[in-house]
Design a protein around this nucleic acid. Structure first.
Lengths: 362, 362
DNA sequence: TTGAAAGCGGTACCAG
DNA sequence: CTGGTACCGCTTTCAA
C-alpha cells in the first residue's frame, strides 16, 4: 500500500490552486482571495464554505504567485563575506545574529536567503544579482568596512538595506551601530588600568573594519587617559592562526607588555597557547582579554575575561529596522538595547610589577 | 548631481521588463526569451540587438516570474532545529556545511533559504509551509533522529529532500550517510586501546540522534572486541554545560575510568575544565577525545585529540544529490568522499596503570 | 527566423 | 456581497 501510492500521489495530483478552491466552494476566485486576505465583504456562510474547501484541498496561496503579483518576494538577503572559504576554511557563522534575524523575519512571514561570498567583489556581485532578479526585498549588510561601497550600491539598486555595524562615513543608510560606549572596550581598558597594567598590546581585527578600528581607538584613548599606553597594535584577519603569529611578533618586540587584548575569544585562546609556549603564565605574567564569541572561553583554563554582546538582540533589531524600511508594519518593540558587558574571569590579574609594588608598599 | 538623481531613479524608473527590452530591440518578447534561454533559432544580428538592449536596460529576467512560470523557485530550504534558542541560547551553526551547500547551490543559481525551528513540531510545520507556499524546490534535512517522521512528511509534501546523516530505518530517502567506518569512532577506540586504556567513558550526544548512537555503538563494539569496556555512557544535548555535568556524574560513579570520549570539541573542553576541578590532569590521569567541531581544540592546552570530518565536503555532496533529485543536471564530481580522520594531539596518552606496567616491564 | 497568444497562480478593480 | 477580468513578467507552443 505504500511503495507506489505515495510516489504516484506526488507525481499525479497537481497541487491545488485558488481556482480549485473556488470551484469546490462554488464561488469565484476573487471571493477566495478576499477571504484569505481578510478584506471583508464576504458573508460568513460563504467564507465558511471557502475555508472548508481550502482546508479540504490543503490549499495555501503560492508565494511565487503573490511575489509576482505584488512585486515583493517576502525574502531578505544576507551575504556573508568570507574570504578564505575557497581554501576550505570553515569560517564561523555569526550564529546568534542569524537566530535573532530569523526569529523576527519568520514572525512576519519573511524568509532569509543566505549567500556566501569570497571577496568584496563577489559580495557586491551577489547583491546585484539578488536585486536584479528581484529575489529579495531587502538585505542585511554585515561587517562595516572603511571605504565601504555597499551603501551606494544598494541605493543604486533600489534595495532597502540595514547595516549591522556603524558606517565609516556619515551616510543615510540605516544601521545598528555599536553604540556610544565603545563596544565594551572602555570597560576593558578601565579594567586593565585598575589592575595596574600600563603596557598593553592589542591583537585586533582587520584594519579596514570599522568596528575593529573603533574598538582599537577607544582602547587607545581610554588607556592614554589613564596614563597607560597601547604599546603594540597588530591588526589582522579574525583567525586563531593570525592571532598566534601576532602574539609571537609582539613578544619579540615588546617583551615588557603585561596584557594583551584580542579581537575574539578564539584568537585569545590561540594567543594564550602561544604565550604558554613562550613560558609565560596567564594571568601571572600576561593578562588576556577576549571578545564576544562563543562562551567556550568560560571553560578554558584560566577562564577567559571577555566582552559579551547580545548579538541575537542586534539581529532582531536589524530585522525590525529592515522590515520597517520595506514597508512592513512591525510591532513596536519594548526591547532595550543592551550595552556590551565586560565579563571578568580568571585570565586577567594585576601585573607582576604592580603586585610586587603593592606587596612592597603593604 | 547625485543627491536626488539616485533617489529619483530608484523611485521613478520602473525596472525594465522583457517587454521593454523587446521594444528597444524592435522584436517580440519571445525573441528575447529565446536568446536568454539559449534556445537558438535567432539570427546572430537579432541576438546582438537584443543583448545590447538588455545590457542598456540592465535587464535580468525576474526570478519570481520564472518561478511562477516554471513552477520552480530555484531555492532550497534548510530548517535548523535548535531547541533552546527560545531561551536566547546561541547555538552554533554548522558553518562548514553551509559553505559547502551554498557553494554548489550558487553555482547552479539556487538560493538557500534558512529557517530556525525550536522544536520538532515547529520544524515540521516549517517544511509544510515552505512546501505549500512553494517557496522551495527541495530541502536538506539535518540531524537524523531515531523515529524521524520527516522522510514520510517530505514525501507526502512531494518535496525532494536529502538527509545529511543516516536514516534510522531503511527508507528510500536520499542521504549522505556517516559512512561504513563508524564515523571515525573505530579509530578513536583503536587509539585508546593501543594506548592501553581499558575503562573508558563516553559523554555523547542526544540518545535519539542516529549518528550519536551509531558512534556510541561502534565505540562500544570496538572497545569490547579489544577487551576493554565502555563503563559509562552519558548521552545528552550537545552543550558544554551538559558535558560538565555528565563528567561530574561519571567521576562520582566510575572513578576508575582513564579516558573520556566527548561528542564535540566544545563538550570536551568543558569536560576538561571539570576534570581539572577534580584535581585530575590531562592526559596523565585522564585522556580526552573530542569530535569534529572547530579547530579551536588545537589551541587548547593540552591540544585536543579529536576526529576531523570534512563537513563542507558533506555539504557539497548533499547539494549535488538534492540538485539531482530536483532534476538539475549537476556536473559529475570527481570529489572523493573522505573518511573522518583521527587527529592525535596531546590530550590522549597511556593511562597511569599502563605506563607503570610498561615502566615495570621495561 | 520570428511573432502572437495562452497561460503560470494569484490580486484588485469594476460592475452588478 | 459577489463575479468577471485585466494584469504581474516570463515561457512556450503554434503559425506565419
Amino acid at each position: 500500500m505504500d511503495r507506489s501510492s505515495s510516489d504516484a500521489d506526488a507525481t499525479r495530483s497537481r497541487r491545488a490552486t485558488i481556482t480549485d478552491v473556488a470551484q469546490l466552494a462554488g464561488v469565484s476566485r476573487s471571493a477566495v482571495s478576499r477571504v484569505f486576505n481578510a478584506q471583508g465583504g464576504i458573508s460568513a456562510a460563504t467564507e465558511e464554505r471557502i475555508r472548508d474547501a481550502a482546508r479540504k484541498l490543503h490549499w495555501t496561496p503560492s508565494a511565487t504567485a503573490i511575489a509576482l503579483r505584488s512585486a515583493r518576494s517576502r525574502t531578505v538577503g544576507l551575504v556573508l563575506n568570507r574570504p578564505g572559504v575557497a581554501e576550505d576554511g570553515d569560517p564561523e557563522l555569526p550564529s546568534g545574529m542569524f537566530t535573532g534575524l530569523e526569529k523576527v523575519l519568520a514572525r512576519h512571514d519573511f524568509g532569509l536567503l543566505l549567500h556566501i561570498a569570497t571577496s568584496v567583489e563577489h559580495e557586491e556581485q551577489t547583491y546585484r544579482r539578488l536585486a536584479e532578479a528581484r529575489r529579495v526585498d531587502g538585505v542585511v549588510l554585515l561587517e562595516s568596512r572603511v571605504g565601504d561601497t555597499r551603501f551606494e550600491l544598494v541605493r543604486r539598486l533600489g534595495l532597502p538595506a540595514v547595516l549591522l555595524g556603524t558606517p565609516w562615513v556619515d551616510d543615510p543608510i540605516s544601521y545598528i551601530g555599536h553604540g556610544p560606549r565603545g563596544a565594551g572596550m572602555r570597560e576593558v581598558a578601565e579594567h586593565l588600568l585598575e589592575l595596574g597594567h600600563r603596557s598593553i598590546a592589542a591583537v585586533s581585527g582587520p584594519e579596514d573594519y570599522v568596528e575593529s578600528s573603533h574598538r582599537d581607538r577607544i582602547l587607545r584613548e581610554v588607556l592614554a587617559a589613564g596614563g597607560a599606553g597601547l604599546v603594540a597594535h597588530r591588526p589582522g584577519p579574525y583567525t586563531p592562526v593570525t592571532a598566534a603569529e601576532r602574539t609571537r611578533a609582539i613578544l619579540a618586540q615588546h617583551p615588557e607588555i603585561t596584557a594583551i587584548v584580542y579581537a575574539t575569544d578564539e584568537m585569545a585562546i590561540a594567543g594564550m597557547a602561544t604565550l604558554r609556549e613562550h613560558g609565560l603564565r596567564i594571568p601571572e605574567d600576561v593578562s588576556v582579554v577576549g571578545y564576544n564569541g562563543t562562551d567556550i572561553g568560560a571553560w578554558y583554563s584560566p577562564a577567559l575575561t571577555t566582552v559579551r554582546r547580545d548579538v541575537s538582540q542586534r539581529g532582531r533589531a536589524a530585522a525590525r529596522a529592515l522590515l520597517g524600511l520595506m514597508g512592513v508594519t512591525v510591532e513596536a518593540s519594548d526591547e532595550e538595547v543592551v550595552d556590551p558587558e565586560l565579563v571578568i574571569r580568571a585570565s586577567t590579574a594585576p601585573p607582576r610589577e604592580a603586585a610586587t609594588a603593592t606587596a612592597t608598599a603593604g
